[in-house]
Structures are given as structure tokens and as C-alpha cells.
């Protein structure tokens, strides 16, 4: 299957909390995408980027972290020993340990929904269209199209290559 990306564009996000809300709704009140508030009151959703070169996947000693056929970085719960090595290396501090599941939990790109042919809920419901889901080419195109509507303060001169690196979160780990 074709690799899908789930890209959250901070230059477009208005911090409305819809993504966190719908994620919590479909996960019994425990969202995988969470809003953090910065010192100057920007509301910033933090979520797994399903990195192309995912440090968490590389570091996991028990190979509990794998990539599924759509490209989502996922957890084999029964293999996770809770060592938190993935949390140590995730640039975004995404994985967290669930005492209930007794394993790391994180965004699985709405795996259950994808099985039913539905897309990730946050991307479908974000009113600002700040979250794009799909194959790389389409995501890049939609991000560019949406960014063109941003105020100048939220536009950046990025080369296609730079934008692509941001979307795939392929900042190579030195």
C-alpha cells in the first residue's frame, strides 16, 4: 500500500482544540494528540509525526515498534517492556506509558478507522485544514494550497525540498 503522511502544519493551526477533542472522543477520553500552551499563549497540538526515519523504531530494544502498511509507526503492545527508550529519543516527546495497557501508547494514525476505510479523525475535522492526510504528493500540494491563504506572518519561503523534509519528518538523526 502507498505510504501515507499525517502532517500538522503549525503555520496554519489556530489552536482550536478540535483535533484533541475528536481524538479523545474515539479513544475513551484519552487523546493521542494533545494541546500544549506556549509561554506567549500559542495553542500547539503535539502528535506523532510517523517519521520516515523514526528514532523510536530504531531504538526499541525488543522491536516492539513497527511500521504498518500505510506507514503508521505502531506498537506491538505485548512486546513492549516499558523501558521508555522511545520516549527518550522521540524529538516530540510523543510516546507515553499507559498503566492500563501496560505498554507504550501513541497515535496509530487511526488504525481501526483505516481498516474500515475511514481517514484519521483529526485531519477530517480540523476546521482550519491544518492537518493533511494522504500520500506525500497530495499532502504537499494541499499544504501549499492552504498556506497560500495564511496571513503573511504565517507564510514562509521554503523550497519544495524543505517542505518535504518537514512533512516526512525526515530530519536525519546525526
Amino acid at each position: 500500500m502507498e505510504r501515507k503522511y499525517l502532517y500538522l502544519d503549525y503555520l496554519t493551526c489556530i489552536g482550536c482544540e478540535t483535533c484533541e477533542t475528536v481524538c479523545a472522543f474515539i479513544h475513551d477520553g484519552n487523546p493521542n494528540i494533545r494541546i500544549y500552551v506556549t509561554e506567549n499563549k500559542q495553542y500547539v497540538p503535539i502528535n506523532c509525526k510517523h517519521c520516515d526515519d523514526a528514532p523510536c523504531l530504531r531504538v526499541c530494544p525488543t522491536h516492539a515498534i513497527y511500521r504498518d502498511e500505510d506507514g503508521a509507526v505502531r506498537i506491538h503492545e505485548e512486546k513492549c517492556i516499558g523501558c521508555l527508550a522511545c520516549l527518550q529519543v522521540c524529538p516530540y516527546g510523543v510516546p507515553f506509558y499507559s498503566l492500563k495497557v501496560k505498554a507504550i501508547t501513541k497515535c496509530d494514525m487511526c488504525a481501526d478507522r483505516r481498516e474500515e476505510g475511514l481517514e484519521p479523525a483529526c485531519a477530517l475535522m480540523c476546521p482550519a485544514e491544518a492537518i493533511q492526510y494522504g500520500p506525500l504528493e497530495i499532502v504537499l500540494e494541499l499544504v501549499k494550497e492552504r498556506r497560500a491563504k495564511n496571513i503573511p506572518e504565517h507564510q514562509r519561503e521554503l523550497s519544495d525540498e524543505e517542505l518535504e523534509r518537514s512533512v516526512i519528518s525526515g530530519y536525519s538523526v546525526l
Binding site: C16, T18, C19, T21, A24, F25
Partner: peptide, 12 residues
């Protein structure tokens, strides 16, 4: 409130 809160309340 905000859009997200309204959506949450609408859902529940």
C-alpha cells in the same frame, strides 16, 4: 469558548 469545545459538547 472555542470551536473545539463546541464540537466536544456537540458530540457528547
Amino acid at each position: 469558548t472555542k470551536v473545539g469545545r463546541a464540537i466536544k459538547d456537540g458530540l457528547y
